[in-house]
Design a protein around this nucleic acid. Structure first.
Lengths: 348, 348
DNA sequence: ATGAAAGCGCTAACAA
DNA sequence: TTGTTAGCGCTTTCAT
């Protein structure tokens, strides 16, 4: 068995309270401090956080429930959050719910039983019913990427509609009017928002959207491959496509390669997320870049403030909305140029 | 405050042991079972795993320490392990140590204080000194990707030397003799192994390796970019390059694009990991693919057996070595062909 | 500054 | 089957 404070007390001849006080920054006589430290060394003592957690009713652990760890958008955010949280003594338990509502609820309940001090969730379940029980504990919840009706909590959002609108605006400026979109599942909030942005931009430009130009994928690579194949088949006149997450962007690039389509001469592309991948493409992809670092830091910051660790405790729910930006590559071509000169020069 | 078993006892008029028995699969009279379940509903009771953990000295939690969460090789393994472990009631606390030995030790100590039931580690520290303290607890440790001298534990390894050897063999078969390698840091075990495989294959082929053909990167994208720039500059005669992890493979592809080199006509490439990325490249990349799924399942399985959850408890340390395979794309070209016909057809 | 003792919520041994 | 009770390792009053 591991050594306990009792062992240290026995060894040093001191009382339990003194040892505890030592560990919690209290005042301990120099002479005793040394004795305690010797005992710690010899007994290889390590605080038992389980016992401490039971007593203090705080586990110094934050639960994180996300749809998919194997998704660079998620994993970047997690890395960033963990950084901040750990530097304040908080651990994170990460639960990947595989974009499954049942697993999501299980994960939240699981974390509740583990008595995490707070919950960070990129929600899959629209209704928020998975958060009700946790919400009752009074412990803080921060949602990422969407607000949940009926659950009082803070949220860190991205302006997805504007993101999509800006991307499509860019294509319109380049003269494109037959613009396809590979968008996420209809029941996912961020996907709806991005689609809305697409419609808005088209409307502004006086373009009547054809249903055949809208492809609903499932945010995985395969969805991008099928998406581009489908769109190309259904819309021979299509000159540009906007893809709305990283995995499907990669899928689209795969599809374009495999179909032997020349990008951007035959098809202009704007992708999403992962600047590194965009740079690795040939020609480099123009993408919408989400502020993952900002999302991570904001989320962690809000959580820490709720936990009383840093800054003021906000009185009302906080909502932060962050903007995306477009990183210009060479995958967007002026519409019609191709036919005129067959060239492939950068245009931006 | 959350409801406790005591609250349920009071509400139902039953004793604590009966409630506990109910939760632990004991026999409870039908009538009482119903009363208990009603009370649970009304009080929104959830077991307190912290208290349970203190009592049973088992937290049903496994600690995982990896170099980098933002690395698809790691995140795929984690996803796979989590799947298995969670289905057996174990949670995982993941610590990303940013490939930093100090952080790695901190992470292990942190997990020890949290009293995790077992530790899974893809080690950064060669000496294994970060595992000594945990090792003393007698709780199981499973290392991934390398064995540690002096620490008695199970390991799941990949045959990295053979992986590299096979890749270089393939290039040799295609007639290449000026083969560059972009390899990881010299103090990383897997990197050493892969470099060894490169030397072995070259020796077999009677190729005298030039130092200028070996570039040590740091397993990140930027390392791949600099690596290929450097190699090309130093070795105008180089006709092929082998890149030894995913991030650097992506970097190499970026670099090749940016240098305007034609792959594979001017330079043949074999990359590493991430089949999806390989498919997204144009032309598709030939890569060495690691069995991430197998690593994940094996690691989880061994951990569970050590925990007495599944199968026999092995008497001696277990070491599993898994093989990689080569996924053929179109990025390897017969050496010299280019000059003869300038063509770019698939060769494999 | 230090010690004694209660108790966090649970499990398990024992008794009934 | 059910109840009583001790105790896991810690923090935290309250004395001293």
């Amino acid at each position: 068995m591991a050594a306990t404070m009792k062992d240290i007390a026995r060894r040093t001849g001191l009382g339990l309270a003194t040892i505890s006080s030592y560990f919690n920054g209290g005042n301990v006589r120099e002479k005793n401090r040394i004795k305690i430290e010797e005992a710690i060394q010899e007994l290889h003592y390590e605080v038992n956080e389980v016992a401490r957690g039971l007593k203090t009713n705080a586990t110094k652990t934050i639960g994180v429930v996300i749809p998919e760890l194997n998704n660079i958008f998620c994993s970047e955010i997690i890395t960033g959050m963990e950084d901040v949280l750990r530097s304040h003594g908080y651990a994170t338990i990460i639960c990947d719910c595989r974009t499954d509502k049942t697993l999501e609820k299980e994960a939240v309940d699981f974390l509740m039983r583990k008595r995490v001090d707070g919950l960070i969730n990129m929600p899959v379940d629209t209704t928020g019913s998975h958060l009700e029980a946790f919400s009752r504990t009074g412990k803080p919840i921060v949602t990422i990427d969407r607000k949940i009706q009926g659950i009082v909590c803070d949220s860190v959002l991205v302006d997805n509609q504007k993101a999509a609108e800006n991307a499509v605006d860019l294509l319109v400026e380049r003269g494109h009017r037959d613009i396809g979109i590979i968008v996420g599942p209809g029941d996912i909030y961020t996907a709806q928002e991005r689609l809305k942005g697409y419609y808005t931009a088209c409307e502004k430009a006086g373009i009547k959207v054809k249903d055949s130009l809208v492809y609903h994928g499932d945010y995985i690579i395969k969805g991008g491959v099928s998406g581009i194949e489908e769109l190309v088949k259904r819309n021979p006149e299509m000159t540009a496509v906007f893809v709305t997450n990283y995995e499907m962007t990669m899928g689209t690039v795969i599809g374009i390669n495999e179909l032997g389509i020349h990008m951007p001469r035959e098809l202009s592309v704007i992708g999403f997320d992962n600047l590194e991948f965009a740079r690795a493409c040939s020609p480099q992809l123009t993408i919408v870049s989400q502020p993952t670092e900002g999302i991570a830091k904001e989320t962690a910051r809000i959580m820490l403030s709720r936990l009383g660790v840093e800054g003021e405790i906000p009185e009302t729910p906080v909502t932060v909305k962050l903007q995306t930006r477009i990183i210009t590559g060479r995958s967007v071509f002026p519409c019609g140029e191709a036919k005129r000169n067959g060239d492939c020069a950068e245009v931006s």
